[in-house]
């Protein structure tokens, strides 16, 4: 078997002018025709991205800039309305509370998912009998269809017959109307969302822990560092890059969350658990008379938030690769 270096410098192409290609680089870099041929393999996905990502996004922007009625939605010819839909949304009395709910939902979900995920990752990192199997089992909530998780939690949190209220009753606390009282609905959907998000945090943080060389721990153990000191002195700093990425991905995912809230509370009662995502859906599909314009406008605001988070993620990710 020829060594990597040999093969990559063997001139198989016409030019043969091998630039300073490091071993394991891509030899095709040297052949111009091939590089364009590569687009033959990329053509399907490119066409796909334009037709099924760019075009729906464009349609969505267009929806938000026109005054659509049901009739003009079907037949076309809605008048251009400029930023009217955005103005409608931003001046809506529901805008402030909905934005607050989105922020609270996202922040609380991230904080609990991450903390619990981290604790579990640290725990499972100490290998013990069955640790692999148990770690795999904990993935289940993340893999279940969201409608399954959401309806299970709906029943667990049911006011009259839910297990949670029954358990509270045993310790002498009065039952809470988890899903039907404005004061608790947001908390309820956060609880369900945290449960769903823990496995993702666990798996990613665990993979980060595995990348930390064990010698570092052995050295600090020799120095007599306690477990707590080891966590703050070694694990936490070394895990910072992975933690940052976990949190940012979590942020992007959580901003998108729609299914859980819609299935459990429909954003209610009286909008008390509505986020930007559920509000947008309600305007577009939740009422008898759809308001696609404002719905699309909210969607576009949401996408701006997600993209800002996304760009921050990519920036941090790139910077870490450069190191």
């Amino acid at each position: 078997m020829p060594s990597t270096t040999q093969t990559s410098t063997t001139a198989r192409d016409k030019g043969g002018a091998a630039p300073t290609a490091p071993p394991r680089s891509h030899p095709s870099r040297r052949r111009r025709p091939d590089r364009w041929l590569a687009w033959g393999f990329l053509a399907p996905v490119t066409v796909y991205l334009i037709a099924f990502y760019a075009y729906p996004l464009y349609r969505n922007v267009e929806l938000s800039l026109r005054a659509y009625t049901v009739r003009s939605f079907v037949q076309g010819g809605a008048p251009f309305a400029g930023l009217d839909n955005y103005r409608t949304v931003l001046t809506d009395p529901a805008f402030g509370p909905t934005l607050t709910h989105t922020v609270v939902f996202t922040a609380a979900s991230l904080a609990f998912q991450f903390t619990i995920g981290m604790a579990l990752a640290l725990f499972f990192h100490q290998h013990f009998p069955l640790s692999r199997t148990l770690r795999a089992l904990i993935l289940v909530p993340w893999l279940l269809p969201l409608i399954v998780s959401a309806s299970t939690w709906s029943w667990l949190l049911n006011s009259d017959s839910g297990l949670v209220n029954a358990a509270l009753g045993v310790v002498g606390i009065d039952g809470v109307n988890w899903l039907t009282s404005p004061g608790w609905s947001l908390t309820s959907v956060i609880i369900a969302n945290v449960w769903i998000g823990i496995p993702f945090n666990l798996v990613v943080l665990y993979s980060g822990l595995q990348a930390i060389p064990t010698e570092m721990y052995e050295a600090s153990a020799l120095d007599g560092a306690s477990g707590w000191q080891r966590f703050w002195g070694i694990t936490f700093p070394l895990l910072r890059p992975v933690s940052l990425i976990t949190l940012l991905l979590g942020l992007i995912y959580t901003l998108k969350v729609f299914d859980i809230i819609w299935i459990m509370t429909k954003g209610g009662p009286t909008g008390s658990s509505a986020t930007l995502a559920t509000w947008s859906y309600r305007l577009g599909f939740g009422n008898l008379l759809p308001e696609f314009g404002p719905g699309a406008a909210i969607g576009n605001l949401l996408i701006v938030l997600a993209l800002i988070a996304g760009l921050v993620y990519i920036r941090i990710d790139r910077r870490q690769h450069l190191r």
Binding site: L57, N60, F285, A306, A309
Partner: peptide, 26 residues
């Protein structure tokens, strides 16, 4: 293209759904 793909993953489903709905209706 890789960058576009990374960004594409971040688009909330509700936005895609609304765009698809408008297109599919037509």
């Amino acid at each position: 293209l890789s960058f576009v793909l990374l960004i594409a993953q971040m688009i909330p489903g509700i936005i895609m759904a609304m765009g698809f709905y408008a297109i599919y209706l037509t």
